[in-house]
Nucleic acid binder design. Sequence first.
DNA 1: TTGTATGCGTTATCAC
DNA 2: GTGATAACGCATACAA
Lengths: 341, 341
Amino acid sequence: MTDRFETTIHDIARKLNISASTVSRALNNNPIISEATRQKIRQTAEEMGYRPNTLAASFRTKRTNTIGVIVPLINRHFFSSVISGIEEVAYKSGFTVTISQSNDQFEKEAKIAHTLFTNRVDGIIISIAMETRQFDHLKLFSAKNIPLVFFDRVVDEIDAHKIVADDFGGAYFVTKHLIEQGAKQIAHIGGPLNLKIYENRQAGYVKALEDAGIKLNHSMIINNTLRREEGTEAIQTLLKDNNTIDAVFCANDTTALSSIIYLKSIGKKIPEDILVMGFSNEPFSEVVTPSISTVQQPGFLMGQKAASLLIEQITNKSENHEFLTIVMPTDLIIRESSVRK
Amino acid sequence: MTDRFETTIHDIARKLNISASTVSRALNNNPIISEATRQKIRQTAEEMGYRPNTLAASFRTKRTNTIGVIVPLINRHFFSSVISGIEEVAYKSGFTVTISQSNDQFEKEAKIAHTLFTNRVDGIIISIAMETRQFDHLKLFSAKNIPLVFFDRVVDEIDAHKIVADDFGGAYFVTKHLIEQGAKQIAHIGGPLNLKIYENRQAGYVKALEDAGIKLNHSMIINNTLRREEGTEAIQTLLKDNNTIDAVFCANDTTALSSIIYLKSIGKKIPEDILVMGFSNEPFSEVVTPSISTVQQPGFLMGQKAASLLIEQITNKSENHEFLTIVMPTDLIIRESSVRK
DNA sequence: TTGTATGCGTTATCAC
DNA sequence: GTGATAACGCATACAA
C-alpha cells in the first residue's frame, strides 16, 4: 500500500536545495563531489528511502550490469559448480546473473539467446546444447560486439574466449589407467562428435591405445547422447559384438552407471570381470556400489575464469582481439570400479 | 563492428512517413491499428533489423517482465525440478526468469533479495535459506506491493501464496510403513525446526507413532541441518544412546545415505538389522546399494503452480487478498532400504 | 566543486 | 485509425 511513491534524485535535490546532477554524482561516488555534500546526500537518500531506479540508469547508460548464462541443464553437478563460480565473481563485480537452461535443445537455446539479446545483457557465458550445430543465434552477439565466453562445450567457428577442461588428457589417463590394470579390450561409449569435448575425450582414448600398442577396434566404440537408457543399450550392443571386452570407458558418469547396472544384472562382476570408468564425477559416482572411477573437472574454477574474462571484456571495451582458449587440468579419481582386485 | 546503430521506432516511422506512436502500437499488436498498416510496419521493422529496446519499454511501463527466483541450492534435484516448472510457465507467458542461490545463507539471501528489488523484478518466488529467521528483506516486497510466492520452505508470518508438499503426510506414511515392516524403535534425524517443512515432517512421524500406540522417545530424535557429515554424527549418537534402534527416518536423502554408509561401515546390515528411509528422492537414492526408500515431492508441478499464481498476481493487480496455501500430494517410494526380507 | 540542459526509446494522454 | 507531445529517472557534456 506504500506503493506508487518512489523518491528520485530530484526529490533529494529539492529537499537539499541542490541540483539533481550533484545528487546523481554523489550517489555514484564520483570523486569530484566534496566529501561533505556526499555525506549529506547519502544520508538524506537513506532517510527518504531512496532506491535507485536501475531501469532508468540502464536505459541511460545502455548497460544492464547483467550477465546471461546458458547451460544445458542446471541439474548437473558440473554445470551447477560452474554457475556457482560465475556467480561468485559476478557478484563481487556488481553484476547480476541470469541463468537459463536449454535442456540440450537447439530451439530452446536459440529462444533464450534471443531473449537475452533483446534484454540487452552485457555479455553471455554459454555451454551449448547437444543438438546445436548451427550458430546464428550466437553470432548475433558478436555482430553487436556483445562479449561472449564459451565453456566446456565450445564452438570452433566463433571467435571468443573459451574455457575448457582437459578432456583429451583426462581421457588419455583414464585409458592409460585401464591398460595398467591389465585391460586389453577397452570399449568406449562416447558422446556426439559434433561436440569438441566428446571428440577430445575419444581422441584421448584413441591416443592412449595407440601409445600402448593396442590396435583400435572401431566396433568397440559407440556414440550416442549419453543418456541413461542409451548407456544400457550401448553396453548391450558392445557385449553382443565383442564378448571379450574387459573394460569400458564411458564419456560421462551417467552411462558408466547404467552400464554397471546392466552388467551387474547379467551377472558380470565389476571390477573383477569388467572395469568401468566414467567422466565428470557426478555426486552419485562416489556412493554407488561399486564406486565409479572418473575424471574430475574444475567446474567452480572454470566458472570463475569464464566470468572474469567476460567482465574484463565488458569493462575494458579494449580492442584487444586476442581470444584465449584456456585448458584447465583435470584429475583422475580412482575408485572401486576400475581397480582389479 | 556493426555496433552503435540501433534502429528505433522513430527510424521506422520516418521511413514510412507515419508517426512513431503508430509504429509502437502496431508492434504491440494494438487492435486499434488497421491490419494494412500493421503488416507494413512489421515488415519494414523486420527489414531494418529492428529490435525493441526492452530497457526503454520497461523504464516507461515500470514492468520488467522478469521473475526472480531464490533457492537454497540449484544443485538439488528437487529445486532444479521446481525451477524447470517455473521456467516453463514463465516462458509461455513471456516472462524472463532470474535464478539465484542463497547457499542456505541468510546474508546471501538478503543480498540477492535487495538486488532483485532494486532491479525491479515484477515478482519473486522463493524457498528460504536454512539460516533465515528474520524477514525484513522479504517484507520489502510486500511493502511495495510486489507479488511474492513461497514454495517448500515458506514463512508463516508473511501473507502470500504458498506452495508446499505434503510433508506431514509423507512423513506419516514413511513412519507407518516402517511400523508395518515391524519396526518398534524408530529414530528420526530431522531438520532445523524453524523451517515449517521439517516441523511438519517431524510432526508426521510423531503422529504415526502415536496412532500406532508407540511411545515417543525424545532421545531418538536429533535435529541438525541435514548435511552429510551431520547425518553420520547423528546416527552415531543415536546408536550410542539407544542401541535397540531398528529403523531410522531421515528428513532428507543425504542423511539417509550417510547413515547407511556409516551403518554398513560398522557391520550393520540394511534392511536386515536397521531399516532406513529418506525424503525428497534425490537421484542417487535409486542407484545406491541398498536403494533408498523415500518420499517423492512433485517439484515440477510445484514450480508450475508457483509461477502461475505469481503471474496471475502480477497481471491482475486484483485487490483479491485471499492468499492460498496449496499442499501438493507426495508419493511414498518403497525401495530396498526399508523392506524387511 | 556544482549547476543547467539535454536526451536515451518507449508508451500514454490527448487531440484530431 | 492516426498523430503530436509529454514524461518516465537518470547520467553526462558543457557551462559556471
